[in-house]
């Protein structure tokens, strides 16, 4: 496994550990005060991250698709050049099918 796979695994493991700690803070770290709202959002945090990443992916692919550059003029000029090339190549003794 390469360095990148290792660091992705490390980040994933650290995130999971932090989430478990947050979910079970009243048992694991009862002496640390945790605000109420964290208790409320903690259970849906992984799902939220997944949906956020999905939304980012879709938006980014969608934008790239909409802005995809076409180049019909490149095609037209290529066709013209192909004809020019064929004429000149025949003159030079190259067999053209």
């Amino acid at each position: 496994m390469g360095k990148r796979a290792q660091s992705i695994l490390l980040v994933f493991a650290a995130g999971t550990a932090a989430w478990v700690l947050l979910m079970l803070h009243s048992v694991l770290i009862p002496f640390v005060p945790v605000p109420q709202y964290l208790d409320e959002i903690a259970p849906v945090l992984p799902l939220w991250l997944l949906v956020a990443f999905g939304a980012y992916s879709l938006a980014s692919i969608g934008y790239a698709l909409v802005t995809f550059g076409d180049c019909p003029e490149a095609y037209m000029s290529l066709l013209k050049e192909i004809n020019e090339a064929k004429t000149d190549l025949k003159r030079r003794g190259v067999q053209i099918d």
Binding site: I61, A64, L65, F68, G69, D70, C71, Y75
Partner: peptide
């Protein structure tokens, strides 16, 4: 830059 001759499916796959 740009591409010529790709349909929507091909563009989507590439993206």
């Amino acid at each position: 830059g740009g591409v010529h001759g790709w349909d929507l499916r091909r563009k989507l796959t590439s993206r």
